[in-house]
Design a binder for these strands. Structure first.
Length: 714
DNA sequence: GGCATGTGTATTTTT
DNA sequence: TACACATGCC
C-alpha cells in the first residue's frame, strides 16, 4: 500500500515522511533532499486524510513554500496545495492577525511597515525628541531599527543588546529607550505593525486565553523549514501553536545557520527535543547534490568549526574534478576570469541559468555586472538593493498607503514633503490639522471571548484625515497651493471618497473598499507624481521603468490592501520577479548574495571575493561567533554547487579614493581555506602573476600557518 | 520656513 | 557613494 511518491526515498527520508503523530526533528545536511522530504510529507498527510487547510507550512520565503506545494500536487495528482497555509512566519502572522487580531484589541485593517518605514518613523521621533541635535552623535535611524529589532526578536534586555552588539551606543541608552517608548506607542496610534510586531502579536495571540486555542486548533499539522534560522519569538510561537496537539515537524541544519543578525538562534534547533519531549530525530546524511570532491572540500571547512552537530555528509557522485581555487591578481582580473569560465561552461552545454556567481555583500558584484554588461552576458541579480527600497517606488507606495491607512504618519510625511514649498514644519502642521494621529482608541476588549468583536467600529468611524483633506483642506504656503490642490483631487479620485458626501459610517473611515482598480490608481497618481519625480531625480528616465513595472504588478491585484501588504511582506527579489515567468528561450546568469542563495542549487557555482575581509566580512570578525557564522556562510555557498565549484580570490584591492591613485593593499585568502585543506582544491592562477608579485605567495602561507597554529592552541 | 549647497562619515547579510 | 547634518540665502 506504499504510495508511488515514496519510491525513490531513502530509508531516513521515508521515516520522516511516514512519521505518525507527535514532534519530529529532521536534521538535514546540505543537499540531502530536504525540500523533497517536506513536499512528500505534505502529500502523505493529505493522502492520509488531513484537510489541506489544516496544514501549516512555514518556510523562509514564499517561493520555497510554493515550490514544495507544487511538488506535493504533482505527487498526489490533486490540486489541493493552494489550500495549505504556506508562507513565511511574517506572512502567516499577517493573515492570522487579520482574522483574530481583535482579541488583542488590534484593528484588523492595520498596514504593515517595512524596515525603511520603520527607520523613517524612528527618524521622525528622533527629531521630535530633539535627539538629533546633541553635541554627540545619536544613533542613526537604521541603527535604531536594528537595536530595536534585536531586542524584540531575541527577547533580550536593551542594556544587554547594547553592551553586546552596539557598544558604541551605550551612552545613549536613555535617549534610545525614550525613542523606543514613543515608537511603540506611535505604531498603535498610526494603526501600523512593523515586521517584529507581526511575530510578537502572533505570539501574544497564542497566549491569549480562548483565542489562543482557537488559532492553534485550526491546524492539525505544523511543518517548519529552515528551522536553524528562526529566532526566540518564532520558537515561542511554535510552542504556543502546539500546546495540546504536538504534531510538529521541523527541518533544519545547524551548519547552515546564517541569520543571527536577524536574531536567529541555533538554540531553537538544539533545544527542540527538550521543548517537545518524545521528539523523534531523523538525520539525513546522504547528499544527492554535489560531487564527492566538492563535498570533501565543503566538509573540510566545517570540520574546523568550533561546535556543531556531528554529521557526516556523503555522496555517491564520484568525480575526478576537484573544486578550483583560482588566485587572481586583482578584481578586474577576477571579472575577466569569471566571465571566461562562465562562457566556457555555456559552450560545453551548461546554460547560464544553471550557473551562479555568489558573493558576501550586494556591492561585491558591482564590477562584475559592468563586465557582464560589456560582454552582453545576460544576468539577474538576487539580494542587495531591492526594487521596493528605491526612493521613487517608496514615494508611489506612500500615496497608496495614505489612502489605505489615513493614520499612517510616515507615509503622510513622505507625501507632503514631495510638494514644493512644503518642508518638515508645514508637513507637521498639516498632519496635525488633518488629525492624522487622532485615531480613536480601540475600545477595551471585553475579555477573552470577545473575538467576534463588534460595535467598536462606531468609534473608529465617522472621522478620517483623508475625508478631512478632501472636504476641508488645510491652508498651505502660496508656493504649494496649486500642487496641494492637485494632490487633493487625485486622492479623492483614487480613494473613492467623494467630496461633500454625507459622513456615512460605511465609507468614511474605510474608503479603501471603493475606488478604481489599483493599477488605475497608480496610473492617475503618476500623472500627479511624474513632474515631481522628474524634478527630484536626475536619472529619472531610467527610474521611470520601475514605475511602469509597479503599475504592471498592480494589474494582478484587485485589492489595494493585498497589493501593499504583499509588496511589503514578499518584495520582488530580482528584476526577474517583475517580468513574470521568464520566456523559455531566455537564459541568464544568476548573481546572488550568499544569503539569498540559501536553498538553491546550480550545476556550476562561482564564489568570488574569497578573501579575508570579504568572507569573513570585516564587519563580522570582532567576535568569535561572528567568524563562525561567516564560516557557515562560506559553507552554504560551497554546497550550492552540483558539478563544478570555482573559488576566486583577488590578491590586490585598489582603494578607489581618487582616480589617479594606484594605492592598493594585499588581501589574504579567506581564513576558511587554510593550508591544511588546500590539497582538496585544484590551484590555478594566471601565468603572469607569479613573475609579477613573487614575494606574495610565501607571505600568505606564513600568515595562514600562523593562524592554523592558533587554531590548535585553542 | 524652505531649499540648495557643502562637509563629514560610515560602509553586510533580509522578513 | 549616500546619507545626515550645518550653513547661508531666498
Amino acid at each position: 500500500m506504499s504510495a508511488p511518491w515514496l519510491n525513490g526515498l531513502n530509508r531516513e527520508q521515508r521515516e520522516a515522511v511516514m512519521h505518525g503523530s507527535g514532534p519530529l526533528l529532521v536534521i538535514a545536511g546540505a543537499g540531502t533532499g530536504k525540500t523533497r522530504t517536506l513536499a512528500c510529507r505534505v502529500a502523505h498527510l493529505i493522502d492520509q486524510g488531513t484537510a489541506p487547510d489544516r496544514i501549516l507550512l512555514l518556510t523562509f520565503t514564499r517561493r520555497a513554500a510554493a515550490e514544495m506545494l507544487t511538488r506535493a500536487d504533482h505527487m498526489t495528482g490533486l490540486k489541493t496545495s493552494s489550500r495549505v497555509w504556506g508562507g513565511t512566519f511574517h506572512a502567516v502572522a499577517n493573515r492570522l492577525l487579520r482574522i483574530y487580531g481583535r482579541a488583542l484589541r488590534l484593528p484588523t485593517d492595520f498596514t504593515v511597515m517595512d524596515q525603511g518605514d520603520a527607520a523613517d518613523m524612528m527618524n521622525l521621533i528622533r527629531n521630535e525628541l530633539g535627539l538629533a541635535r546633541k553635541e554627540r552623535r545619536f544613533p542613526r535611524k537604521q541603527t535604531l531599527v536594528s537595536i530595536y529589532s534585536r531586542t524584540v526578536n531575541a527577547r533580550d534586555k536593551l542594556t544587554h543588546v547594547l553592551e553586546r552588539y552596539f557598544p558604541w551606543c551605550q551612552d545613549d541608552i536613555d535617549g534610545i529607550s525614550e525613542v523606543f517608548d514613543v515608537y511603540t506607542r506611535r505604531k498603535r496610534e498610526n494603526n501600523v505593525l512593523d515586521y517584529d510586531d507581526l511575530l510578537l502579536f502572533w505570539k501574544l495571540l497564542c497566549e491569549a486565553p480562548g483565542v489562543g486555542d482557537a488559532v492553534a486548533n485550526r491546524f492539525d499539522h505544523v511543518l517548519v523549514d529552515e528551522y536553524q534560522d528562526t529566532n526566540a519569538v518564532q520558537g515561542d510561537i511554535l510552542l504556543g501553536m502546539r500546546k495540546h496537539n504536538k504534531n510538529i515537524m521541523v527541518v533544519g541544519d545547524d551548519a547552515q545557520s546564517i541569520y543571527s543578525f536577524r536574531a536567529a538562534t541555533i538554540r531553537n534547533i538544539l533545544d527542540f527535543p527538550e521543548h517537545f519531549p518524545g521528539t523523534r530525530v531523523v538525520t539525513l546524511e546522504q547528499n544527492y547534490r554535489s560531487t564527492q570532491p566538492i563535498l570533501a572540500a565543503s566538509n573540510a571547512v566545517m570540520d574546523q568549526a568550533r561546535e556543531r552537530f556531528t554529521k557526516s555528509l556523503w555522496s555517491e557522485r564520484a568525480s575526478d574534478q576537484k573544486p578550483v581555487l583560482f588566485t587572481c591578481l586583482d578584481e578586474p582580473e577576477q571579472c575577466t576570469v569569471v566571465c571566461q569560465h562562465v562562457i566556457a561552461h555555456l559552450e560545453m552545454g551548461t546554460p547560464l541559468m544553471r550557473q551562479a556567481v555568489l558573493f558576501r555583500a550586494g556591492h561585491h558584484s558591482d564590477q562584475l555586472e559592468v563586465e557582464l554588461a560589456r560582454r552582453n552576458i545576460p544576468f539577474h541579480k538576487y539580494g542587495g538593493l531591492k526594487f521596493i527600497e528605491a526612493a521613487h517606488i517608496k514615494d508611489m507606495l506612500a500615496f497608496l498607503r495614505v489612502m489605505e491607512n489615513p493614520h499612517d504618519e510616515v507615509s503622510w510625511f513622505r507625501v507632503l514633503l514631495m510638494l514644493e514649498g512644503i518642508g518638515p514644519r508645514t508637513a507637521r502642521r498639516v498632519m496635525d490639522e488633518l488629525g492624522v494621529r487622532n485615531r480613536p482608541a480601540e475600545p477595551p476588549s471585553a475579555g477573552a471571548d470577545d473575538s467576534a468583536g463588534n460595535g467598536d467600529d462606531a468609534r473608529a468611524r465617522g472621522f478620517s484625515p483623508l475625508r478631512h483633506l478632501i472636504d476641508d483642506p488645510p491652508d498651505v504656503p502660496p508656493a504649494a497651493r496649486q500642487h496641494f490642490e492637485q494632490l487633493r483631487v487625485v486622492m479623492a479620485q483614487c480613494s473613492g471618497v467623494e467630496a461633500g458626501q454625507p459622513d456615512d459610517a460605511e465609507s468614511s473611515e474605510r474608503p479603501r473598499t471603493s475606488g478604481p482598480p489599483v493599477a488605475t490608481q497608480i496610473g492617475r497618481l503618476r500623472h500627479f507624481y511624474d513632474p515631481i519625480f522628474q524634478h527630484a531625480y536626475d536619472n529619472w528616465s531610467i527610474r521611470v521603468r520601475d514605475l511602469e513595472q509597479l503599475e504592471q504588478i498592480a494589474g494582478r491585484y484587485r485589492s489595494r490592501s493585498r497589493f501593499i501588504t504583499d509588496l511589503t511582506l514578499d518584495p520582488p527579489t530580482s528584476t526577474s520577479d517583475l517580468a513574470g515567468p521568464p520566456l523559455l528561450e531566455e537564459d541568464f546568469l544568476v548573481l546572488s548574495t550568499i544569503h539569498s542563495a540559501k536553498g538553491c542549487e546550480w550545476d556550476v557555482v562561482h564564489i568570488i571575493h574569497a578573501a579575508d575581509g570579504m568572507i569573513p566580512s570585516d564587519m563580522a570578525i570582532s567576535d568569535e561567533a561572528g567568524v563562525e557564522e561567516e564560516r557557515r556562510l562560506f559553507y552554504v555557498a560551497m554546497t550550492r554547487s552540483k558539478d563544478m565549484l570555482y573559488v576566486y580570490c583577488p590578491l590586490r584591492y585598489y582603494h578607489r579614493r581618487s582616480r589617479m591613485s594606484d594605492a592598493h593593499s594585499y588581501a589574504q585568502l579567506t581564513r576558511f581555506l587554510p593550508a591544511s585543506s588546500r590539497h582538496l582544491f585544484e590551484p590555478r592562477a594566471t601565468q603572469d602573476f607569479e613573475a609579477d608579485e613573487p614575494q606574495l605567495q610565501p607571505l600568505n602561507i606564513q600568515e595562514l600557518q600562523k593562524r592554523l597554529r592558533e587554531l590548535w592552541r585553542e
